[in-house]
Design a protein around this nucleic acid. Structure first.
Lengths: 155, 155
DNA sequence: GCTAACTATATCGCGTGCAATTCACTAGTG
DNA sequence: CACTAGTGAATTGCACGCGATATAGTTAGC
């Protein structure tokens, strides 16, 4: 076993679980956010991960499963069933690419494209529920992005 | 609060999806954190939510299911099966309270108490993986705590 | 051409989260 | 005592996430 490198870790004595406190703040805030979205997205019939996929497609239609995964940091084990549910809603279609039959191209249907016009209330609702100023949101987002990239590096 | 311009969307023009960008940062960072914990907790045989329950019990043993839920912002639909799995690991016991037979009191077993001594590496590992200074962690945690409380208010 | 290595999805199993509902028990009220 | 409202857990049903594995399609090497 390795020795306790107390000088290297350098945790504050007053709050020995600080890292874990942050992790819990992250975990519980993420769940709270999910609940807000569940309420706002109920009208659209989508879950939050499904909504994220739609955001990707509204940005750029006709992308492969793996491309969606790169944007959302999700893999096929999560995306395949998720995409099938969205397809069952009639919002997207899934077809094998001609060039490379291994790839599955995800494309918006007419209903999928039109759904975009109902998203204004979602954006407003989340912004309102956050009770934050734009500057605060920017600050938190930047710090989270940095933290995520570091966590992914050290995964 | 009086500055509400509800007829048109009062979002910043430069970044129309800013709130959602923050939400995605929150969502994806939380998943990244969970992956770090999964690796660190594998040795202990725990998942992150299970570890959270253990943290609560190490802080205060012999609490009811609903008290655990208040600490972790989870309800019985999540906690009951979760606690049963921890019980199956031999770390806790679940007994009905004598005073009020509706309540279930969760208590640490000897193995559950002793497991606490293996958590040093988990704390160190998370802190190291975050790549952040203590000040950064404190700052993010405070902002997340504020955001969560506002989201829960507006839920 | 043949085949081994590689790649993109798909599948399986398990553990959450949570809305909705049910069950067991308690605390009244008359 | 029976009746009722309320509360704490448990249960049900569904949708993620993801480690592990499988499968089909592609490429590289010989």
């Amino acid at each position: 076993m390795s020795n306790k490198r107390t000088n290297a870790s350098a945790k504050p004595k007053g709050s020995p679980l600080l890292g874990e406190q942050l992790c819990f703040a992250l975990y519980s805030t993420s769940l709270a956010m999910n609940k807000i979205y569940r309420k706002l997205l109920r009208e659209l019939g989508l879950t939050y991960p499904q909504y994220l996929v739609m955001l990707v497609l509204w940005e750029r239609d006709g992308v492969s499963v793996s491309e969606i995964g790169e944007h959302l940091f999700l893999d096929s084990a999560t995306l395949t069933p998720l995409l099938k549910r969205i397809e069952a809603l009639g919002l997207i279609s899934r077809r094998r690419a001609h060039e490379d039959e291994r790839q599955v191209i995800v494309s918006l249907s007419r209903a999928g494209r039109e759904l975009r016009q109902k998203t204004g209330e979602v954006q407003d609702g989340v912004f309102h529920a956050s009770g934050c100023t734009v500057d605060e949101l920017v600050a938190i987002k930047q710090q989270l992005d940095r933290l995520r990239s570091r966590l992914q590096e050290n995964a």
